[in-house]
């Protein structure tokens, strides 16, 4: 009788061995949060708090890695394969790009969490040097000759797009004329001597390199500069009109499914909406969504009339097509302005 070796037995043996990687790779959980430029300090604190919370809840040790850069640049990184479990970017358009071009999450991702998946908000303000030597009070002061304005590149920075749209919205509201609003931006960018790729780079240019008379900045970044980067050297100026910036967050489905981090990644983002998460956001000068926390920190944030991306610009897709896509308004006014 032949002692034949069954192919089925071999298959079962190899499949059994195939289960080994899971057993051998069992280890502490890690997440990668790919975020935009100025959120470094926010997520350093938030990650520690959430890791503590997660370990208490599940017993798992969690390590959250952070990656920061211009929001558009970060989105391109994720589309190109950066293994982000979660993205916490400056604007929804960048996450839409990940959904559409990277096919990494559903197109309706923004409906998955409350408040359009924006757990905190911010706005755009001015940071000027002590004593406000150029007397800057509102957007129209930024186009005056001799005023040097620092703002990053809207092609790479989400914050810069908010800056741009706030300026454009101001002039459009004031004149009701799109052509004049466009000329206004052209004049403004003529006063911009350096275009950084991200908001943190622009802060460095203004605060540490001493360049420019005014920095158009995220409110949280401006307050951070005043309170921590250069105490007594800068002042915040709230313009008459600004824009409601809603930095969104989401899980990158393709990555978490592959890495088996779906549950912890979702819990990570949910924790941003809790009182503890909202408190951390407020401490880092982001406007909390939760009423109780917002009320507690109301005095930290100036009252400004705020435009909205949906109400005043027709949403991010329309705003991007009109202003930031190849050959759109920004390309025209920046090239011709130089």
């Amino acid at each position: 009788m032949k002692n034949k070796l069954s192919f089925r037995s071999l298959f079962i043996l190899l499949m059994a061995l195939g289960l080994l990687p899971g057993a051998l790779t069992a280890k502490d959980v890690t997440l990668l949060n790919v975020s935009y430029d100025p959120t470094r300090e926010l997520y350093e604190d938030f990650n520690k708090a959430f890791a503590k919370h997660w370990e208490a809840k599940t017993g798992e040790k969690l390590s959250v890695k952070q990656s920061h850069g211009g929001s558009g640049k970060q989105a391109r990184g994720v589309i190109d394969g950066l293994q982000a479990d979660v993205v916490t970017l400056a604007l929804a358009y960048d996450i839409d790009a990940i959904a559409e071009r990277g096919k990494s999450l559903p197109k309706d991702w923004q409906k998955r969490l409350p408040n359009n998946s924006s757990p905190y908000t911010s706005t755009i303000v001015f940071l000027v040097r002590k004593g406000n030597p150029k007397g800057i009070k509102d957007w129209n002061d930024l186009i005056k000759p001799g005023v040097s304005v620092i703002t990053p590149n809207p092609k790479t920075s989400g914050g810069a797009r908010w800056n741009y749209l706030a300026a454009y919205g101001y002039e459009l509201k004031r004149t009701g004329d799109a052509a004049k609003a466009r000329d206004f931006l052209k004049a403004l960018f003529k006063n911009v001597p350096v275009l950084d790729t991200g908001a943190r780079g622009a802060t460095t240019t203004f605060v540490q390199r001493g360049i420019g008379d005014v920095l158009i900045a995220w409110e949280n970044e401006a307050i951070l500069a005043i309170k921590e980067l250069g105490k007594g050297e800068f002042e915040l100026v709230a313009p008459s009109i600004s824009i409601l910036a809603e930095p969104p967050v989401t899980v990158v489905d393709r990555v978490v499914k592959k890495r088996g981090t779906e549950v912890v990644a979702k819990a990570y983002l949910d924790y941003l909406y809790t009182e503890a998460g909202q408190e951390i956001a407020a401490i880092h000068y982001y406007r909390p969504r939760l009423e109780s926390v917002a009320a507690k920190h109301a005095s930290s944030f100036p009252s400004i009339k705020l435009l909205t991306i949906d109400g005043d610009f027709g949403g991010w897709a329309a705003a991007h097509a009109a202003h930031f896509s190849e050959g759109a308004v920004f390309d025209q006014i920046y090239q011709s302005g130089k």
């Binding site: 040097s148 001597p193 350096v194 950084d196 790729t197 240019t205 390199r209 001493g210 360049i211």
Partner: peptide, 17 residues
């Protein structure tokens, strides 16, 4: 001074890029 700082910063940004 501003011009020099701007040139230096541009050079710094170019190096970073």
């Amino acid at each position: 001074d501003q011009k020099v700082r701007i040139l230096e910063r541009k050079s710094e940004i170019d190096k970073e890029a």
